[in-house]
Simulated scan of single mutants.
Amino acid sequence: MEDARIWSFEESLWTADAEHYRASIDDECLMVLPQPPFVMSGQQAVEAVSSTPRWSSVELSERQVKRPQEGLIVIAYHARAEREGVQPYEAHCTSVYRRLAHEEWRVVQHQQTPRLMAHPKA
Score class of each variant (00 low, 15 high):
77 Y>K: 02
100 L>I: 05
32 V>K: 08
45 A>D: 13
27 D>V: 15
107 V>P: 01
40 M>R: 11
50 S>W: 01
117 M>K: 08
26 D>A: 15
112 Q>V: 02
14 W>H: 10
32 V>H: 10
28 E>F: 10
118 A>D: 14
102 H>P: 04
64 Q>L: 05
91 A>T: 03
30 L>D: 03
96 V>Y: 01
70 E>H: 04
29 C>M: 15
59 E>L: 09
100 L>E: 07
76 A>F: 01
24 S>A: 13
78 H>R: 13
111 Q>V: 09
105 W>C: 01
50 S>E: 08
92 H>R: 15
98 R>A: 09
49 V>Y: 09
5 R>Y: 00
86 V>H: 04
8 S>I: 02
89 Y>W: 08
23 A>I: 03
35 Q>N: 12
108 V>R: 06
111 Q>C: 05
120 P>L: 11
31 M>H: 14
43 Q>N: 14
25 I>F: 00
21 Y>E: 07
100 L>P: 00
59 E>G: 06
34 P>R: 07
43 Q>T: 13
62 E>Y: 00
41 S>F: 07
34 P>A: 07
52 T>L: 15
103 E>Y: 04
51 S>V: 12
56 S>M: 00
32 V>C: 09
57 S>Y: 00
111 Q>T: 13
7 W>K: 04
103 E>S: 14
71 G>A: 01
57 S>D: 10
5 R>L: 06
65 V>E: 15
49 V>K: 14
44 Q>M: 14
120 P>G: 07
69 Q>P: 00
62 E>F: 00
18 A>Q: 11
104 E>N: 07
113 T>G: 03
70 E>F: 01
117 M>D: 12
41 S>W: 08
9 F>R: 08
110 H>W: 02
103 E>D: 15
89 Y>P: 01
76 A>R: 14
21 Y>L: 02
10 E>D: 10
102 H>Y: 04
80 R>C: 12
71 G>P: 13
17 D>C: 03
55 W>R: 09
70 E>D: 15
40 M>H: 06
104 E>H: 04
117 M>L: 12
29 C>A: 15
15 T>G: 12
87 Q>I: 03
50 S>L: 02
92 H>G: 06
67 R>G: 10
30 L>F: 12
74 V>Q: 11
119 H>I: 03
116 L>A: 07
114 P>R: 11
74 V>P: 09
67 R>N: 06
107 V>S: 04
69 Q>V: 12
41 S>V: 13
91 A>H: 02
10 E>M: 02
80 R>K: 14
104 E>F: 01
75 I>V: 13
38 F>S: 01
62 E>I: 01
23 A>N: 14
52 T>W: 10
68 P>C: 05
85 G>K: 03
60 L>C: 09
82 E>H: 11
24 S>G: 02
103 E>W: 00
52 T>G: 09
109 Q>T: 03
113 T>S: 10
61 S>W: 01
121 K>E: 15
18 A>D: 11
92 H>T: 08
27 D>C: 06
67 R>Q: 13
24 S>T: 02
91 A>P: 00
54 R>D: 05
45 A>K: 11
41 S>Y: 11
14 W>G: 08
115 R>H: 07
6 I>N: 09
75 I>N: 13
96 V>R: 04
94 T>S: 14
116 L>G: 05
39 V>L: 13
99 R>C: 04
84 E>P: 04
29 C>Q: 12
20 H>N: 15
